[in-house]
Each structure stands twice: as C-alpha cells, then as structure tokens.
Write a protein that binds this DNA or RNA. Structure first.
Lengths: 238, 238
DNA sequence: GAGCACCGGTGATGGTGATCACAAGCAATT
DNA sequence: AATTGCTTGTGATCACCATCACCGGTGCTC
C-alpha cells in the first residue's frame, strides 16, 4: 500500500521535489505517519552548518529547499568539497547508521529548509520497518558510488585541466537542452571550484582563461556555456 | 535465537575467522540455513579475478581464505588500488544492492577460497529478512567510511611522502606487539604500493631509501620495522 | 562617497615529482 | 650455468603547478 503525497514526510516543505527513489517517499501509510511524528522541520540561513565533521551523529537531515555543500578538511586548513547537495538529498545518513562521527561538514550555500530526524528515533524506526532498511541500504550504496566517482577523479585524473573538464561535463549533462546546448548557472566561486577538483584558486582562474581561449566554453555573465563538448570529453578520456 | 557455528554460512571454509560484526554471522537459525542453501563455495588461484570493474553484478563474494585487492583503472591504464581485503570481507555487496556495475575489480593476490551468493537470491533473501537488511546497511556504511578515508588521503594529503607515511602507519597499527615494535610482512611490490598512494614506482623506491636513511624504518628481508613512529606521525599530520 | 571584504586576473619563481633510461638483483625454469 | 621475467635502485631532465605578490573590480555597510 502506498501513501498519498499528503502523508509524505516532506509535507511541511513547500517546494519539495518528490523523487521516485527517495528513501522516505512512497512508504506504507503507517510508516509514513510514524516518520511524520519523529521528524521536525527547520529553516537555515546561508552559511549555516547542519553538522560538522567529527561530531557525534545527532540525526539525519532531509534537505527540502536550498543547496548545501559537503566538505572535509585537513588540520592545516586544506579543504575539499566532496558533494553539492540539493533538495531531496538525505544528509548524515551514513554516520547515523554506522554510529560513527560525521565524516563531512554540511554547510548551507543558500537559505533553505530541512527535516531533521533524530538518530535514536530513526534507528528504532528502521528496526520496526525492515522494508525501509532496504531502502536505506540502497541509498547508502548510491552514496558509495558517488564516493567512488570522487576517488576516481582524485586518484586517476592527473592534471587539473582533466578534473576541470570532468566537472564542467558533469554540470552540463544535467542541464542539456533539446537544442544541444547546455547553459549552466555558475553559483560557485573559483575558490570553491578549486576545492572540488583539488587544486588552487589561481589554477582554476587560469583554466577558465585557457578554456575560453580554446573556445571550449563561454561565459555570459554568470551563465556558463559549453562550446565544444567533444574536445572536453577528449581531455577527460579516463 | 542465534545459530551455533555449525549453521554458519562460512561452514565450508577451513580457516574462516568469524567476526562479531560480520553481516552473515550470528543470524537466526532459519536465516542461516537459507543462506547455506543459496551460497556456493569455490577455490581461486593467485591472480584470479572475482569480478571486473564495469561488469553487471552477478553476486557477492565472502572471502574465506586468501587476500584480494580491489582496484579501479582509467582508460590509459593508470590503476589505483582502493582496498586490500582479507578473510571475512564481503566483496561486491554495494553493486548488488544498488544494481549497478561493479565499481572495482577484485583480484586474488594469493590462492584462496570464497563463498558466492547470487544477486537475485541475495536480494530475495534480504526482502524476507529485514534484520539482515539492516546489517547490510551497516556494512555498506562501513564501506562508505573506508571510501572517505581514501578520499581524504588522495585529496588532502599533498606529497607522496605524506601518503606513504600514512600507509606505513596504517599497516603498523594493525600489528603492534606488546613490546611496542610493530613488524610488518611486506607482501606488496613497490608498483602496488605506488598504486595505493597514487604515485609512481620510482617514487616509492626513493621513498623507501629516504625513510631508511632518516632512520624512520628498517628492512630485514621482507619484514618492515617502524623505527620512529612519532616522526612518521608528524609527516602525516592531517 | 569612503571604507571594507571578498572575488577574480595575472606575472614571476621555484620545488617536486613524473618520465625516460638503464643496470643490477633475485627467483624460477630449463 | 644460462636464460627469462619480474622487481628494485638511481641518475638526468623537464613540464607543471603551488606559492607568493599585487592590483583591479564589485557589492555591501556605515
């Protein structure tokens, strides 16, 4: 039996994109109601930290609106951004399940809203609802895949240009129009891009110049346009 | 109710170390018996590939004896080893759960034995036994943690010496004796070590020389001895 | 409008590790 | 003992990118 959207945990969210694969969607009626009881919703300003790397897990956050960046840092202050999350993503799930400290920090990149499900309640809930546990396992294995993509990018791609091209392509494929072009709204600073591909701000700046000169991309205001996708794919080639 | 070891899935393995946290141990009697029905055991020679990156997932392998290395490669032939597995590890679980291609290749580093559980049977089994699904989720999140360690190593540690020191320490902590020393049997070639820390064979060779000269380590035959652990930890410092 | 904080471009420099090349060590097989 | 194949050590070279330094631009606040 499936719950109508009215019983969905994401109720309180105004603009929640319901994904088919979302682990907390399309639950049975009783499971959905139970979840609604144990969740709470909050609004976060830009820059808010949902949780910080190393903290004991308090619970999971289901992002309803806004974007968040997940990052991990070394003691000397070097930071890498491992994922950009948006509405629908579940954050902190891994730490809660394995009862280990958060392996990343989660920071809101813009104002947003999230449902919070406390650790103990969630674990109890999963014990009662084995079906959902399997959904959780599926979600975890998707996360694992993403992590492996990251490992491949960091470990196999040697040059910054390669990683940069890879990043550009990953952005553009998500927004490909039916006319073949794929404009991307650039919301990240060069610094942040550098933290994604593991290089320095200066190098990112130079990469933009270089790729523009080679007609690989074009910038109109803050809109990025891929001009020569095959060439970019050739640079990646891993 | 817990099954006595006699009902354990790992029955057929001669030397199987039973771990408390092992997802397929300490199951209920009926679950254990069911698992015994759907598994099959096989022996593999050195160099055998249990599965290859990109293949559709056929099932999971529970390693009973022998060691295996998990690796991923780029088209140009660059390879990174992401994990060394030994007896008790479950391989391919992630791909089976998410029904995506194997994200790594698994190669036996020495002769060994493994239980195989076909994909469909396992998924069916998990649907019937929600308790085990939660165990699977826990295992997946442990894997996820390991992957994140890898990401931190590749992304945050800059110099090869840092990663090399980190690797040495990770080896030695596992085998620390009560007298403080921690001899490690070196079974990897320099080439393989290079593939773990993402550098070249030559660099690894030079690192060994350098660390020996600095009295950080010592080699007696194929036995590695850490001479100055604090200094190594200082090199890591991330 | 002045001041401030952040962001983005760009030049100069130097260290570092990848790459190439070759020799030596070691084990297994014949 | 000789051949073969794999592993390891090491020198020379060089491209690349991190780092430092500085400046101009933009938007915010007081």
């Amino acid at each position: 039996m499936r719950a109508p959207y009215g019983l969905n945990i994401l109720d309180n969210c105004l603009t929640c994109p319901v994904r088919e694969e979302h682990i907390f969607c399309n639950l049975s009626v009783q499971a959905g109601q139970r979840l609604n009881d144990i969740k709470s919703t909050a609004v976060y300003p830009k820059g808010a930290m949902l949780f910080i790397e190393g903290q004991q897990p308090r619970g999971v956050f289901v992002l309803c609106a806004g974007k968040a960046k997940l990052s991990t840092s070394s003691r000397e202050g070097k930071t890498i951004i491992t994922k950009l999350s948006d509405a629908g993503d579940v954050l902190g799930l891994n730490s809660v399940i394995s009862s280990r400290p958060y392996e990343v920090s989660a920071e809101m990149m813009e104002p947003g809203q999230a449902n919070f499900i406390p650790r103990e309640s969630l674990l109890q809930f999963l014990k009662e609802h084995g079906e959902v546990a399997l959904r959780v396992a599926e979600q975890l294995s998707r996360n694992y895949y993403t992590a492996y993509e990251e490992i491949r990018t960091l470990g196999l791609a040697t040059s910054p240009s390669e990683k940069f091209a890879k990043l550009l392509l990953s952005w553009s494929t998500k927004t490909t129009q039916n006319d073949g072009s794929s404009p991307v709204k650039l919301t990240l600073t060069h610094e942040e891009i550098a933290e994604i591909i593991g290089t320095t701000r200066e190098t990112v700046s130079r990469l933009f110049s270089e790729f523009k000169k080679k007609q690989l991309l074009q910038l109109k205001g803050s809109t990025l346009l891929i001009r020569n996708r095959p060439a970019l794919e050739k640079i990646v080639q891993s």
